[in-house]
């Protein structure tokens, strides 16, 4: 761990923000709480994806596999076999870890370039959607309904939107903290050296297989757990939403807009875009379907052209520059 990791945790600002966020269920009506919950889901997913896609620079388009496993598998285990969803969550996370490790191994074994990696993971994502929609056990094309949420924590029921909101808040915070921890650990250095030049990284003794697998596994497990909680929240798991390559594309775009490879950037991207999308969809979706994705598209294109590093690094740079100027002036 880099020495600045622990002091950052001790700083009161993130704790204050977290505490503020935790009071939201007491302040906001359910509609806005729903928007915040969705935002937290995407913030967590984008942060988890960032470990592989941002820090390690491996453009994985296969993350819908992990969301899908977390959502569909854990739900199917509960609905079809009566397995407790906590256990289902663990099983799904293990399955995601195994799939993630397999993807990393294929990447390593065949020395895929960035483009090949993106294309292969995209093919996996398409195959996963076809497989799930054709597999009765996983709900097939029509999806699965989860039993009513009675607030029984032992049965993975959080008692409605407030409970899910708090759980997701914790999960999103965890994903961001994991990003911080990785960035300030040797793993983070290794992953960034792999991103910048794989051959050079290998030449100085960075183990490609070990580091890539570790990053992918951590990312897959976090993603899968978010998937399970999201499924519980939705109560109806739709494969065309949760195992769709479009979901991955959304995650990737949020992370890009916020700032790839930074610990906070992907979460910032989700916080900026997800509420905007939800509100547009909620208010205008009726007579202008597609408007919210259209706006995403505009923002993505604009951000890539105007702030290629992402929104968060730009804000940070402006902030530190201002601070430096003030320090000079005083």
């Amino acid at each position: 761990m880099r020495p600045d990791f622990w002091p950052a945790l001790r700083s009161p600002i993130p704790w204050a923000l977290l505490a503020l966020a935790a009071t939201m269920p007491f302040l906001l009506p359910n509609y806005y709480l729903h928007i915040l919950t969705i935002t937290l889901v995407y913030a967590a997913l984008a942060s988890a994806w960032n470990i592989v896609g941002g820090i390690a620079g491996q453009i994985s388009l296969a993350h819908s596999l992990f969301v899908g496993a977390g959502a569909m598998l854990a739900s199917a285990l509960l609905v079809k076999l009566g397995i407790n969803m906590w256990l289902g969550m663990v099983i799904a996370a293990a399955a995601s870890a195994a799939m993630g490790a397999a993807v990393s191994f294929i990447d390593y074994r065949f020395r895929l370039g960035h483009l090949s990696f993106a294309l292969i993971t995209m093919a996996f994502a398409e195959m996963a959607e076809i497989y799930v929609t054709n597999t009765e056990f996983l709900g097939g094309a029509s999806g699965l309904f989860l039993p009513k949420d009675k607030g029984d924590l032992l049965a993975f029921q959080f008692g409605g939107i407030s409970g899910v909101y708090w759980i997701m808040l914790g999960m999103a915070a965890l994903c961001v903290v994991v990003n911080f921890a990785i960035l300030s650990s040797p793993l983070g250095y290794n992953l960034r050296s792999i991103r910048d030049n794989e051959n050079a990284a290998q030449a100085i003794g960075v183990g490609l297989l070990r580091n890539k697998t570790l990053a992918m596994t951590i990312s897959a497990v976090l993603t899968s757990i978010v998937g399970t909680i999201y499924a519980r929240y939705l109560a109806f798991v739709d494969p065309y939403l949760l195992v769709s390559p479009v979901l991955t594309i959304e995650i990737v775009l949020f992370a890009t807009v916020g700032g790839l490879g930074t610990a906070l950037g992907p979460a910032v991207g989700a916080i900026l875009l997800a509420p905007l999308g939800e509100i547009l969809r909620g208010h205008l979706g009726g007579f202008l379907p597609g408007l919210h994705y259209f706006v995403y598209g505009l923002v993505v294109v604009g951000v890539i052209l105007l702030m290629p590093a992402g929104v968060w690094p730009s804000i940070r740079a402006r902030f530190t520059r201002k601070n430096a100027q003030e320090a000079k002036a005083s």
Binding site: H114, V252, T256, P289, H292, Y293, G297, P308
Partner: peptide, 26 residues
């Protein structure tokens, strides 16, 4: 942005894809 990271170009074209797809939708 041509000549920059491949990821950037892929994401930009994904953005264009969203624009076209949802422009058509609207």
């Amino acid at each position: 942005i041509a000549g920059r990271q491949l990821l950037m170009v892929i994401q930009l074209t994904l953005g264009v894809a969203l624009l076209i797809q949802n422009g058509l939708m609207m």
